[in-house]
Write a protein that binds this DNA or RNA. Structure first.
Ligand code: SF4
Length: 360
DNA sequence: AAGCCGGGGGC
DNA sequence: GCCCCAGGCTT
């Protein structure tokens, strides 16, 4: 049984980890420089999102909005389009709210105090710590999923990471070991270690630069860490959507409500039920209060899995008279549709529509 | 404290 | 299928 971490050991661990990072760090677009705006955008994108997914979005975002000024007052349609497919769309709306706040209340400079930065919309304890350490060289912990995993193993911490108060335990553990002169490198080293070596399944302990400090490795019980009690369950929903064209060939679309799932994104008008829909045309017509001429045959089905629910989407087609268009809907050309942000399940719907149409 | 909020990748 | 991912907000 190895002893509790000594002060000397903490110091050594920190130095070894930072040296490893400086030797082996991943070259990533947001690591080209430490401008606070770039760090901020990357940290928001990386919330619950893997590095490889983020890279192209980050590149595109930065070329669209090179400075906070470019982003602060861009139209919502444009910022959602830049986020299209990335998920958790409130992130980009909160980011714009926060960057407006920085523009108006902080003279365009991302604040350096923990209290101020934490008050910004969408910036929680993790993101605050990441920005302060990486952009401003402050020794602040940034506790995320990687830190839970790496530290629970290093120190055999068995607190339940599902519980809110557990974050404090890990913040203290990091604070006791964080590099005082290179906190940004230290925190990013933990990310790289968690992503490439100390992975959820089959950690590569043989290649681990801090293996000699690791208590779980020494005790051979890595699989016990981290401990997480709750698992989430998903609900099933049944949708019917329709590709509906007006006499001039435009397509019927609708903006989603400003709150809730996929807020403010666009879709093909849809109905949602708890159970499989029996008569697609009858139910759909009952749910959309415009006269429609619907084809009584399903184009096919699209399945989509969210974190907390599953969609089963039946697709039908139809036509309408443009004179019958009511408030809340739009008839758009293909060019107009391209500019609107659509969630992935509706992109799947559109792809299926194009495929079946090309087969005619 | 628990639920909500996307989408993709690994196994 | 399941779990995880550079989490935060709302209730
Ligand atoms: S020795 Fe293994 S379990 Fe411990 S920190 Fe390194 S990779 Fe993770």
């Amino acid at each position: 049984m190895m002893a509790k971490w000594s002060e000397i050991e903490k110091k050594q661990f920190s130095e070894v980890l930072v040296e490893w990072y400086e030797r082996e760090k991943r070259e990533l677009p947001w690591r080209e420089n430490t401008e606070a705006y770039r760090v901020w955008v990357s940290e928001i994108m990386l919330q619950q999102t893997q590095v490889d997914t983020v890279i192209p979005y980050f590149e595109r975002f930065m070329s669209l909005f090179p400075t906070m000024k470019d982003f602060a007052y861009a139209p919502e349609e444009q910022i959602l389009k830049a986020w299209e497919g990335l998920g958790y769309y409130s992130r980009v709306r909160n980011l714009q709210t926060a960057i407006r706040e920085v523009t108006e209340a902080y003279d365009g400079v991302v604040p350096q105090s923990k209290e101020a930065i934490l008050s910004l919309k969408g910036v929680g304890p993790y993101t605050a710590g990441a920005i302060l350490s990486i952009a401003y060289n402050q020794p602040e912990a940034a506790v995320d999923g990687n830190v839970y995993r790496v530290y629970s193993r290093l120190m055999r911490i068995d607190d339940d990471i599902s519980k809110a108060k557990t974050r404090k335990v890990f913040e203290q553990a990091v604070n006791e070991t964080i590099s005082q002169d290179k906190p940004g490198a230290f925190n990013q080293a933990l990310m790289d270690l968690g992503a490439t070596i100390c992975t959820p399944k089959n950690p590569k302990c043989d290649m681990c630069p801090v293996q000699k400090y690791c208590r779980a490795y020494a005790e051979n019980d890595i699989e016990k860490y981290p401990f997480k009690s709750k698992k989430l369950k998903t609900k099933q929903k049944y949708l019917v959507t329709a590709i509906i064209q007006s006499n001039d060939g435009r397509f019927l679309v609708q903006q989603r409500p400003s709150e809730g799932l996929l807020a403010n994104l666009w879709m093909f008008p849809s109905i949602e039920e708890e159970k499989p829909v029996e008569d697609l045309v009858e139910s759909y017509q009952a749910g959309v209060s415009m006269p429609l001429y619907l084809n009584n045959q399903s184009l096919g089905k699209v399945k989509h899995v969210f974190s907390h629910l599953k969609w089963d989407v039946e697709i039908i087609t139809g036509v309408m008279d443009e004179a019958d268009l009511i408030e809340g809907y739009r008839l758009v050309t293909l060019e107009e549709m391209k500019v609107l942000p659509f969630p992935v399940p509706y992109q799947k719907v559109w792809q299926l529509y194009l495929k079946t149409r090309s087969e005619l």
